[in-house]
Each structure stands twice: as structure tokens, then as C-alpha cells.
Design a protein around this nucleic acid. Structure first.
Length: 299
DNA sequence: GATGAGCGG
């Protein structure tokens, strides 16, 4: 900018004045290129006023520098480095190794990511999920053997409790980590106590179904769009304790879909609710209430 | 006229 240039030319900064005063007879820093070596010669005055010549030799690695970056060498320096020559001043600047950024969104990388799973699947379009129980291609929670697993877990828990109480003579695996190995079959595969030969079938004895009890769930349809969960709560509370209310809503718009599920604690209460609220006029609409079918994901 | 959502790995 011409205006700035004028200013700086006419009124050098205090720092520059001091520098100039000190440097009156000091030759400027110079760089000489000699093949792949750069020799930088600098003169300095030490504390005693003696002139020192500092020669630094740099080995230049041949690199491809883009034109845009090379142009920066021509930029006018400012501040304390105003009088420095082009390029980095070795007395104030350390040039380190290049740091390369690894861009993970690289197209090639993405391509590779796509390739790998395909290889794994052996060109099939199979789902990638694998059941931990039976190795089938469904989630573990959807496994047909899941109930059995529940029994195993329940049995293990029971045994742990029995062992901790110090009772139950002959109960194996008193506590995990007690140095005792769990009982193993001839094949070395672990078999839960409840499933071992001679064990009584105690399926479902101690553990309640992990799934929500849907036997006391009713479905309410023909709700007006501005019905809220709290409204349903008020409407059905008189019949008995409610464990859950689900009002179907559009995930994105949050708009009510006009039907809801009410989980009562007691099935009798649910039955009475159906009896009473069925055909009930609510918000200019007539409600429809009936037993809910188990949800799609219920087993 | 509509039978929920989302969690894992």
C-alpha cells in the first residue's frame, strides 16, 4: 500500500532506529548458493563491540515447491523481521521437517473401505451381523436360543448366590476367581449347572422374563393429533397403575400418528379400561381401545 | 387408517 510505504519510509519505527544505530557498519546478512549447499553469512557485534562473522552452511534438499508457496519468498517482511532478506532467517527461524497431513477422506481410502467388507462376505449380500450364541446372521438378542441363554445366566447367578452364602454343598463354582474352575464336560466345553446331566429343569424359575410384559398392554387408536402422553395418562390413570405410555409419533416431524399403547401393571385394569374407554368420545373423535398385539420385535 | 423405538457388534 503506497500510503503505508510512505509512512514507514518517512518515520521508521523506534526499533528500526535502534537497530540501524547498532548496525551502522555491519554488513547485511547474505546467502550464497553453491550447488546443493547454501552458505549464510551474518555479521554481529558482541557485548564487547567486537564484530563477529557467523557462517552457517545448509544442505538444501531438492524439493518440489509449488509456485504459490515459492512466491511467498517475495513477500515484504514486517515487524522485527522487516530488514531480513528473503526466506527464513536462520538466526530467528528453525526450519523443521515437513509435517504431512493424512487425509482420511481420501477417495482411494474410501474405495478400500468398500472393498474390504465385500471380500469378507465373499461377494455375497449377507448381513454382517453374527449371533454370538449360534453364529447365525441375526443379532444375539433375536437368537432363537436366547431363552436358553437366559436360563444359563439365571442358573449361574443362582449358583453364585448359593456359593457366596456358603451353603449348598456340592455347588460348583462358588465364586468366580476363587481358583475353582467351572465344571466342564468331557469335551471341555462349559455347561451351565442347570443344563448338566441330572439337573432338574428349572427354566424360568428365578428370573423374570427380560422382555417387557405385554400382557397388560392396550392399544388406543383414533386419537386426535394434538393428544399428548399426559392426556392419555390422565385418561387411563383411574383404571389402575400404568407402567408405560407410548404415543406413536413421527420421528422427524414429531407429529402424532393418532394411536398409542398403554401398559398397565395389572391385566384386569387394562380389561376394565378397554370396557370403559372403548367408544369414548374424546376431542371430537371416538376412541377405539383394544388389546395390543405384541410388537414386531417381541418374541 | 395407522401394532411403538432403539440398543448393540
Amino acid at each position: 500500500m503506497p500510503v503505508l510505504d510512505k509512512d514507514t519510509d518517512e518515520k521508521p519505527s523506534w526499533a528500526d532506529l535502534v537497530e540501524e544505530g547498532e548496525e551502522d557498519h555491519i554488513p547485511p546478512i547474505s546467502e550464497v548458493l553453491n550447488g546443493d549447499t547454501k552458505i549464510v553469512t551474518e555479521f554481529k557485534r558482541n557485548e564487547d563491540g567486537k564484530l563477529l562473522k557467523i557462517v552457517r552452511t545448509f544442505k538444501i534438499e531438492k524439493k518440489q515447491v509449488s509456485k504459490t508457496i515459492a512466491k511467498r519468498k517475495l513477500w515484504r517482511k514486517f515487524g522485527d523481521a522487516k530488514s531480513d532478506g528473503p526466506g527464513p532467517n536462520p538466526s530467528t527461524t528453525t526450519v523443521t521437517d515437513d509435517v504431512f497431513l493424512i487425509l482420511t477422506s481420501n477417495k482411494e481410502d474410501l474405495q478400500q473401505d468398500n472393498d474390504d467388507p465385500l471380500k469378507k462376505l465373499g461377494q455375497s449380500t449377507q448381513k454382517i451381523v453374527q449371533c454370538r450364541i449360534c453364529k447365525g446372521d441375526h443379532w444375539t438378542t433375536k437368537c432363537p436360543y436366547k431363552d436358553q441363554l437366559e436360563v444359563i445366566q439365571a442358573q449361574v447367578k443362582e449358583d453364585e448366590a448359593a456359593g457366596a452364602a456358603g451353603a449348598a454343598p456340592g455347588a460348583p463354582g462358588a465364586a468366580p476367581g476363587a481358583g475353582e474352575q467351572p465344571a466342564a464336560s468331557k469335551t471341555g466345553k462349559y455347561i451351565a449347572p442347570g443344563l448338566r446331566e441330572g439337573a432338574a429343569n428349572r427354566r424360568g424359575e428365578s428370573m423374570p422374563r427380560s422382555q417387557r410384559d405385554e400382557s397388560a398392554t392396550i392399544r388406543v387408536t383414533n386419537l386426535s393429533e394434538d393428544t399428548r402422553e399426559s392426556d392419555l395418562q390422565e385418561l387411563f390413570r383411574p383404571f389402575g397403575p400404568i407402567s408405560r405410555i407410548f404415543l406413536a409419533k413421527d420421528k422427524i416431524t414429531n407429529q402424532s400418528k393418532g394411536f398409542a399403547f398403554i401398559n398397565f401393571v395389572h391385566r384386569e385394569d387394562a380389561a376394565r379400561a378397554i370396557q370403559s374407554v372403548q367408544g369414548f368420545g374424546y376431542d371430537h373423535l371416538i376412541l377405539n381401545v383394544e388389546w395390543a398385539k405384541p410388537s414386531t420385535t417381541q418374541q
